[in-house]
Design a protein around this nucleic acid. Structure first.
Lengths: 221, 221
DNA sequence: GTGTTCTTTTAGACATAGCTAAATCCGATT
DNA sequence: AATCGGATTTAGCTATGTCTAAAAGAACAC
């Protein structure tokens, strides 16, 4: 058997998660991007990337940013699995609102044992997506991610079902909830205003215009 | 309004809980007792008691140990409430066994927000006791503790219902579970062996002898 | 009352993770 | 190719919480 993987500190786990999500959005993971995402100073981020590199969790080139190693990606997915499973649980079993689950899961994710995680997973019936529509890595940390289209890919007049909204910004989530733009709800794409103008959608909550940038952050089928 | 109470670190909260339980068992809270309970060296405990005294959470007399202040007791009860509510939740809603809930709750208790605590409390119907039979402080941190009798207070031949067993030792809890000695179950006190010998009890699981010391740690009505 | 033993505290160190100020590097502009 | 500005790193410091080794205090035995 291989060497037992040591427990990672909470900070290390948080950085891994941040690097993973930055990589997912195809951004270069620079010191400043990481520092800004983590809400720390640039020197703090530099110091941490060195630690991560020593731990074999990232490849690091000075002045060039970092990239997750396979091991780093695995550990990041473990954290992500904890986070998203907890979000699902908090929404389904304790009735937390879409804008509340992220912060609570953030607090709890580092305190979740593997045993309890398994119990929760089973209790929920092995869910595949969190309440925002993000995929939950399965027990083997496999993540099903097909190519997604967003609201701006829907042709005018077309109908779509919302599959994913941005997580993490409670205010935005409350706004989207008011507009009827939540995972599972249907929306008709009424029109695109010219000159990169806003996108008008109709939902159960009526007709509303949102910016193209926001529309592109909302996935739909 | 008074000054906002600052958040306490996890370590501070753990020490407060340890001091509270030591005080509850009417032991003097000496440096060595605290160090042993926390699993740290004596100098570490000394250092922490100084910090607690600075924070106004304990009264400290060098070489004399510590005693909780009112504020310290309040904060300790907050932690205890988190812990015991979580134990109740884990047992009732996720089916964790009596010997498993303590360790899991220990992990989660510091990551529980007040909002989530309130939701869990309501979901459970405002429970008054944790699965081991220990009382859960209510929202005002009031704790109902009447004078308790234990198995050694039951007269020979008498019947009693178990109300509380020791928490925290999984092995002991599995043993007691095998003997049918869990909160809620009935027991008949068969006999006390002479010369401070063992106590024999009969439960659904049959007739078993346990030491007087253990019998005295099991509360019953 | 004195001494020995046990407990407690002091002293000094380490690891983690953050900060500011200053130095240095990279890349874009000229 | 030189320079300038922004990004990055180095240097040095702080706080928390742990440790071991050594000193100091308390308490008990005689």
């Amino acid at each position: 058997m291989g060497t037992q993987a040591p427990d990672l500190t909470v900070a290390v786990q948080d950085y891994l998660k941040a690097i993973y999500t930055l990589e997912s959005s195809r951004e270069r993971v620079t010191t400043s991007a990481l520092a800004s995402r983590m809400g720390v100073s640039a020197p703090s981020a530099t110091a941490m990337t060195k630690r991560l590199a020593e731990l074999g969790l990232v490849e690091r080139a000075p002045y060039r940013g970092v990239a997750l190693t396979d091991e780093g990606r695995r550990r990041a997915l473990e954290v992500l699995r904890h986070h998203r499973l907890l979000e699902r649980y908090l929404a389904d079993r304790l009735g937390l609102a879409l804008d509340e689950v992220h912060a609570e899961a953030e607090l709890l994710e580092h305190a979740l044992s593997e045993e309890l995680e398994a119990k929760i997973d089973a209790e929920l019936g092995y869910p595949t997506h969190d309440p925002h529509g993000d995929p939950i890595p399965d027990r083997e940390l496999q993540l099903l991610h097909g190519s997604e289209q967003t609201l701006i890919d829907v042709e005018p007049g077309g109908r779509a079902t919302i599959t994913r909204v941005p997580d993490g910004d409670p205010e935005l989530l409350r706004y989207l909830d008011g507009l009827g733009l939540v995972p599972g709800s249907d929306a008709v794409l009424v029109s695109f205003a010219p000159f990169d103008g806003p996108v008008t959608v109709r939902t159960d909550a009526g007709e509303h215009a949102i910016s193209r940038e926001l529309a592109d952050r909302i996935a739909a089928t």
